[in-house]
Simulated scan of single mutants.
Amino acid sequence: MESPERITLAGRLRNNFLTGLIICAPLAITIWLTFAFIDWADSWVTPYIPQRYNPQYYFDITIPGLGLLIAMILITVIGFLVKNLIGRSIVNFGESILNRTPLVRTLYKSLKQIFETVLKDQSTSFKKVGLVEFPSPGTWALVFIATEAQGELAHRFNEMGQEMIAVFLPPTPVPTAGFLMFVPKEKLIILDMSPEDAAKLLISGGLIAPEWTPRPVVN
């Protein structure tokens, strides 16, 4: 049987290890993902850089992030050019070709609409978090609030006398896929937490709950 001193020492070592793991694991994973993304970007962009413009050709060394940097500069330049009349005309011409191409036009329009919705400054999509009863009454699920029902969906719901909200229900612990659901507005509980805090709560499986201060009651 181990003595109390040995048990205490083992407990301290275990606690120290867990503390170090909590500090090192997120840092190591973040660094690994960052360099993996840089390597992925370099593998796509660097092969298309002419040798005379590639510093690696002259210095015979690998420069991490060169491809990513060039891609960011190129995207920024394209965004600048598109704002003028000539650039806009070129983009419209390219889009007209894509819009005449079967299959490709559907994919392009869908992706463009998604990026415009997500990146638009005035967009309110996924800026709020809520709770809905799912999958059964009395059981609540965390959802990201997208927008109010629009178009034909809004018309159909109005015929039923209901005001519906589109929400995204992600799974745990990897919220990269999920369910798009339309729920009655009165059955949606809107939370104060930010989407970032909600993502942390989902990824941690409910272990990392955001801090919350109750709003003062106004009499």
Rank of each mutant, 00 (worst) to 15 (best):
M1N: 08
S3I: 03
I7S: 11
R12W: 12
L13R: 15
N15A: 12
N15H: 09
I22M: 15
L27K: 11
A28N: 03
A28F: 10
F35A: 04
A36W: 00
D42I: 02
S43F: 09
S43H: 14
V45D: 06
P47C: 04
P50G: 12
Q51K: 12
Y53G: 01
I61L: 08
I63E: 12
L69F: 14
L69G: 10
A71G: 10
I75W: 03
V77C: 03
L81P: 11
L85K: 11
S89A: 13
E95V: 11
S96N: 13
N99V: 02
N99T: 01
I114C: 13
V118L: 13
S125N: 15
F126G: 03
K128Q: 12
K128N: 11
L131N: 00
G138P: 08
V143S: 02
F144C: 10
T147F: 07
E148T: 15
A149G: 05
E152Q: 14
F157D: 04
N158L: 11
M164L: 06
F168Q: 01
T172W: 00
P173E: 07
V174W: 05
T176D: 03
G178V: 05
P184N: 05
K185R: 15
A198D: 04
A198V: 05
I203V: 15
P210E: 01
E211C: 00
P216L: 04
